[in-house]
Design a protein around this nucleic acid. Structure first.
Length: 402
DNA sequence: TCTGGGGTCCTAGGACCC
DNA sequence: TCTGGGGTCCTAGGACCC
């Protein structure tokens, strides 16, 4: 039995949501209609394009490129800051609407959802009609537009939602694959990035159709699992289910590009502590314990290095994780000028089904209480209000989202 | 004033064990 | 003593996504 899958994708999400918010507070210009972008703070060296309006796109501006280049392409470009609180609000509002159409929804990112509506189509209606209703309601009730892909599986729905924008619904049924998807350049295929594109072109693959018709075995020989995956995608093969369960994260991490390069180990450690606090706070929010700790650095020259270590016992303690992170940093750091530092925890375990070894160190109750107290204060007053001593002086270097 | 931040998954080599 | 072979865990790095 063929499934009915929708992929709902907000058009220029961050920019659209900013536009709606601005219009609500009395702004008369709709920034979706002028060359505009949402961008990071250039002074803090976070100056990249996060989202662009369609007029901005017409100047050749691309997402993730430096704002510096975007301005050269379009000197009168309007730039607005990001605001993740607002994005979450609109993302949740859209999710509320989508929930009325099926129980099987996967939040693929802040602005994209997959819906399995196979069992949820009222008799006498079609998948396309459902998509059309959803699109209209989002536009009317929330004030922004979406693209919707309608297909028998996730990869085809995802490809379809990307066809032409904005405010469009596209179908990509099996019988349409050849006509609609195969003529497209292979770079348009989900998972074909800038590293694999030249490799595919070198073996004569220009379009998605070329890839689909290539011998699968030869692709597997040359690209391993990845070869199998993209061959299947090109042929519209994807059995993965729409995953409605909000699964636990597999890793949690925080990193920060510093407003200026640092080469003083003590200052770097202060930033590392702040990042570790943020990471362990989120770890505890998920009620998970971490088994490995990793530290990543990026130098002035954009070279990145990372090291990780496995803990004897999984933990959520800020102190233990910071001690480990500090040790890793000291191994990793050779005195270069550092542009970015990051920490992350991996191999996360649910404490409920964790078997304790006989040699487990007893929990440090004092530390646990301290972490819990700080968490409660953060819940109440926000991330940035509560900090351990020592990190105070570096707070101005960081710009946490919330 | 050039280049974010949060993730997932894969690979390959080495250690270690049986 | 001319030196296997499979499996698992750990680690570093990289590709890709939004």
């Amino acid at each position: 039995m063929e499934r009915k899958i929708l992929h709902v994708d907000v058009n220029s999400a961050f920019l659209s949501w900013t536009a709606v918010e601005m219009l609500k507070s009395g702004e008369t210009v709709d920034i979706r209609t002028i060359p505009a972008i949402i961008g990071g703070d250039e002074e803090k060296r976070k100056g990249i394009v996060l989202a662009k309006s369609i007029p901005a796109k017409e100047y050749g501006i691309k997402t993730a490129e430096p704002i510096y280049f975007a301005k050269q392409k379009c000197p009168n470009l309007q730039i607005y800051p990001s605001n993740f609180k607002i994005y979450r609000k609109y993302s949740n509002a859209m999710y509320q609407i989508l929930q009325e159409y099926t129980d099987i929804i996967e939040r693929f990112s802040i602005d994209e959802c997959f819906l399995d509506i196979t069992q949820y189509i009222p008799s006498g209606q079609t998948d396309l009609q459902i998509a059309s209703q959803i699109s209209k309601r989002i536009k009317q009730e929330l004030g922004f537009t979406v693209n919707i892909g309608v297909a028998p599986n996730k990869i085809l729905a995802k490809m379809a939602s990307d066809f032409t924008k904005p405010d469009k619904i596209h179908t990509l049924y099996r019988e349409e694959i050849q006509a609609k998807m195969w003529p497209m350049p292979v770079s348009e295929l989900f998972m074909v990035g800038k590293k694999s594109l030249p490799k595919l072109e070198r073996i004569g693959i220009q379009t998605i159709g070329d890839l689909a018709k290539y011998r699968k075995e030869d692709l597997v020989k040359q690209f391993g699992k990845f070869g199998k995956l993209i061959w299947e995608y090109a042929n519209g093969i994807d059995d993965t289910l729409v995953n409605a369960e909000p699964e636990m994260p597999k890793c949690i991490g925080n990193s920060a590009t510093l407003p200026e390069d640092l080469s003083n180990l003590f200052k770097i450690e202060e930033v590392l502590l702040a990042l570790t606090e943020q990471t362990t706070y989120r770890l505890r929010k998920h009620h998970l314990l971490a088994s490995t700790v990793g530290v990543q650095i990026k130098t002035k020259e954009f070279k990145t290095y990372s090291h990780q270590k496995t803990l004897l016992t999984p933990t959520d303690s800020t102190k233990i994780i910071y001690q480990m992170a500090k040790k890793i940093l000291e191994e990793l750091y050779k005195g270069e000028e550092i542009r970015l530092i990051g920490v992350r925890v991996d191999h996360l375990k649910n404490p409920d089904n964790l078997q304790l070894s006989l040699f487990d160190t007893p929990r440090n109750e004092k530390q646990k209480k301290l972490d819990a107290t700080i968490d409660r204060l953060k819940d109440k007053f926000g991330y940035n209000t509560i900090t351990r001593a020592g990190k105070m002086e570096t707070d101005h270097l960081m710009d946490f989202k919330d």
